[in-house]
Amino acid sequence: MALLSVKDISVTIGKLNLLDGVAFDIGAGEILGLVGESGSGKSLTAMCVMGLLPRIGGRITEGSIIFDGREMIGLPEVELRHLRGKRIALISQNPMTSLDPIIRIGAQIDQVSTLHLGLSAEAAKARSLDLIAQLRIPEPEAIHGAYPHQLSGGMKQRIVIAMALAADPDLIVADEPTTALDVTIQAQIIQIMVELVRDRGLALMLITHDMGVVAQACDRVVVLYAGRVAETNTVEAIFAEPHHPYTRELIRCIPRLGQAPGSLKGIPGAVPSVVDYPAGCRFNSRCGAAEDLCRNTVPALERKTSGLAACHFSEV
């Protein structure tokens, strides 16, 4: 049975329908990549899984989220709080703003294990020091007593990862964990994170817009486009045989060594705005093969040779 099962959730904020029937599973110990351009609903999905949607004024109108056999939607805030940090942890997008600037680094990591594991102050500190060392940060003791502004962005993101691991969760939601960092350390951070997650057998929902990161780190991929799932498959299969034209475009956009200068092109057009999603398949405005059927009828997410895709014309 899946550890987390997101079943056809639709989300609104105000009058905007931002997610439309998004569905996917994450098995225990599995690393799932959630890809898509900005505005496709990746971060919103993360908020749903964390049970934090009401904090940004959103509402799940349909569907269900089952975590470890329990329905999360409608769970009282107190019980959600015992899941958050303890069983489902978040690694946020921007490490620069994710730590409380006037509280020592150590205290912010200790907080998680004292809160959820009931550790004493000394035990929590020992645990935090161990975690800091596992994230390959030199001089854990000094870092434990430092303030966030004394650390670089990469260091801060490692601290946020340590915070996420502090209460031994079952699932980690990483929302574009390297977007705010220098390119030179992005790969390093992903590598450390994936290593620690694999070592512990944790499940990871890795949100990214970088297919390169997906290829490097994930077991399975969910491709989101404009609030709907376009395609989902294992990493090997999706790179070998993408069924959805959007997935093909995403893969085409990965820069390769030895590529002729000027030959790297983006996907033409942009993700349509939520206020004027086209009827039918939402990708039809950017799809080279779109026909009348695509402009009128919403394609269902169907089983293909392997995986699922929502395209009328993908070869079965």
């Binding site: 899941l83 942890a89 946020s92 703003t97 994710s98 730590l99 915070m163």
Partner: peptide
């Protein structure tokens, strides 16, 4: 409204603790 407050909620810190120990302090 700051990001780190959302992070505190994500860590499962009780709201009164977030208000008094973090938000009020700022």
């Amino acid at each position: 409204r700051k990001d780190f407050v959302m992070m505190l909620h994500a860590k499962g810190v009780p709201p009164w603790q977030i208000e008094l120990r973090h938000v009020l302090r700022h």
